[in-house]
Design a protein around this nucleic acid. Structure first.
Lengths: 207, 207
DNA sequence: GACAAACTTTTACCGAGTCAAACTTTGTGC
DNA sequence: GCACAAAGTTTGACTCGGTAAAAGTTTGTC
């Protein structure tokens, strides 16, 4: 029952292999153009095993969601006392960007990933669903802290909007062919603009 | 080629019949438990015809989306001069509620509709997608008015968050069995709280 | 080395959604 | 009215995502 026995290692390796093979095929030919059966064969595994590790086909591509969610929740949960959630998340986004993290939206890896994401409605829909999960996770944390469920859901929604809008702004520019370094440089101001709006509201924009 | 020839009338009638029959079945037995083939048979029509009118199974149930979208966009587009989008939408939500409109979330018709919606992940996902479309439509309007695409997307996202959070708050209470009249009365304050947050931001909530 | 538990494969199946071709109904020009 | 074109519907066959159950294989444990 060792946590790092052969069994566990093999499982992780298989899962990773399937996800990698799948992503490769998707980036080459597009999400809809690749069947799960093909992925299974290319990974040397049965179709059933693929669905064993990834409940939906979309999860083959969006397999880092759990990590992202945990990361964001932790950024809020472990913020220093006196720092608001908005401030913690703002800093977190700046950190991701500075570290060149893929989830900052501006990544040197190129437009492959985001092209796949944007080209498939099913994938896009799942992506939105995951953003929703993020908002729900935030709401839960805030509700724990304050006891006000409605206000917590609103605040969670507003902050999640900032995160996702920042992200998709960068993504759209990259897919459109803008220079990666330029986008990355300009994202700093974009992040601040987004969080300023979430913190202080839309006011009477647009007039 | 008359706009109200027999042809057009028949088409509208068929579409409506299919949607009504489908909703009836879904409310009786749940979304996943009813197949498209069953809907087709119950409506006296072929499966292919169903997909002719409704591209996805989910659209059989969420067939009022186009109306809702147009309604919300129009509320923003036709707002009097000097009134902000936030203010226009706030009023619009109050109006829906006062009129007892289903999309206010608090409706006397009972929990049937929302039970179906909440009980199916596929349906819920589609619902979120439609909310996303609303946000995009707002963003387009704001961009036309101001020329600032990013700020417009952010503002659109924040306002859409208010609308959807207000809605789902009411929906959850109704599904949970709360008294319809009570929910409805209390929604007035909920709407104002949501739009206050969208207009003035989360500040340093939750501390 | 034997046995149980965990993982994988096989086979068979269901339902959503697509395609093309045949068929029926409606609108239009005479 | 009647013929013909256009639009809408049906049929049947098919693909693919996803599930279920049972048999087979690998790993951990005594």
């Amino acid at each position: 029952m060792a946590d790092h026995g052969l069994r566990e290692r093999k499982k992780r390796a298989t899962r990773q292999l399937i996800a990698d093979v799948a992503s490769g095929l998707f980036i080459q030919r597009g999400f809809e153009e690749v069947t799960v059966a093909e992925v299974a064969e290319a990974a040397g595994v049965s179709k059933m095993t693929v669905f064993n590790y990834f409940p939906r086909k979309e999860d083959l591509f969006l397999d880092r969601h759990a990590d992202r969610l945990a990361d964001l929740v932790s950024a809020v949960r472990t913020r220093p006392p006196g720092v608001s959630a908005a401030e913690a998340l703002r800093r977190h986004q700046h950190d991701l960007l500075a570290a060149g993290h893929p989830l900052s939206g501006a990544i040197a890896g190129g437009p492959g990933f985001w092209w796949v994401l944007k080209s498939s409605p099913a994938l896009t829909a799942r992506w939105y669903e995951q953003e929703r999960e993020i908002a729900e996770a935030f709401a839960e944390v805030f509700t724990e802290e304050t006891g006000d469920a409605f206000r917590s859901r609103m605040a969670a929604g507003l902050l999640t909007t900032a995160i996702t809008t920042v992200f998709s702004h960068a993504m759209n520019r990259i897919v459109a062919g803008d220079d990666t370094e330029t986008v990355r440089r300009e994202q700093v101001a974009v992040i601040d603009q987004a969080f300023d709006l979430a913190e202080h509201g839309v006011g009477n924009y647009p007039g």
